[in-house]
């Protein structure tokens, strides 16, 4: 059968041309094609990976933000609490100090009043002495303004002495 006997001429031409084709394709077609396919796949892989990384980072950032927010809230709460405590303390302190001061003032006022009172009493006493001297003088003046009276008086006095 002619169909199943390979023809030498065709085998020869096939061998030559196919090997040339193989060489040409390998060098000028498959190398660049497979190379750029690989490069493209790599770049897509890279892009996907970096996108994934960016997503992760984003999530982390968000979590961080939430944490920071939470912390800030706590901090504010704490500050407010402290401030309230400080305020209360200051008020209490002020109150007690005021009471102390008031007491002091009252005491001072009392002592001053006392001393004023004493000095006033002293003055009044001196005045009373002076007044009584005056009155006495005036009374004496009035009783001894005539010679007879003076004589009478002196006589009385002398009498009393003699009696003694």
């Amino acid at each position: 059968m002619g169909l199943v006997t390979p023809d030498f001429g065709l085998v020869f031409w096939m061998l030559v041309s196919f090997l040339i084709l193989l060489f040409i394709l390998k060098k000028f077609a498959w190398k660049p094609i497979l190379g750029s396919l690989k490069a493209r796949e790599d770049s897509i892989d890279e892009a996907l990976k970096s996108a994934e990384m960016a997503k992760d980072q984003m999530a982390k950032l968000q979590a961080d933000n939430l944490k920071i927010l939470q912390e800030a809230k706590e901090e504010r709460e704490k500050l407010l609490k402290e401030a309230r405590e400080v305020k209360d303390r200051i008020i209490a302190d002020a109150k007690s100090e005021a009471v102390l001061e008031a007491d002091k003032i009252i005491i001072a006022a009392k002592s001053q009043i006392e001393s004023e009172k004493l000095s006033a009493i002293k003055e009044i006493r001196e005045k009373v002495v002076l007044l009584s001297v005056d009155i006495a003088e005036k009374i004496i003046h009035k009783n001894l303004d005539s010679d007879s009276k003076q004589r009478d008086f002196a006589d009385s006095l002398l009498n009393k002495m003699e009696l003694n």
Partner: peptide, 13 residues
């Protein structure tokens, strides 16, 4: 075939 794939390779480049 050589023409086809070389031109395709050029497109890739």
């Amino acid at each position: 075939i050589a023409w086809l794939f070389i031109s395709v390779a050029k497109t890739y480049k």
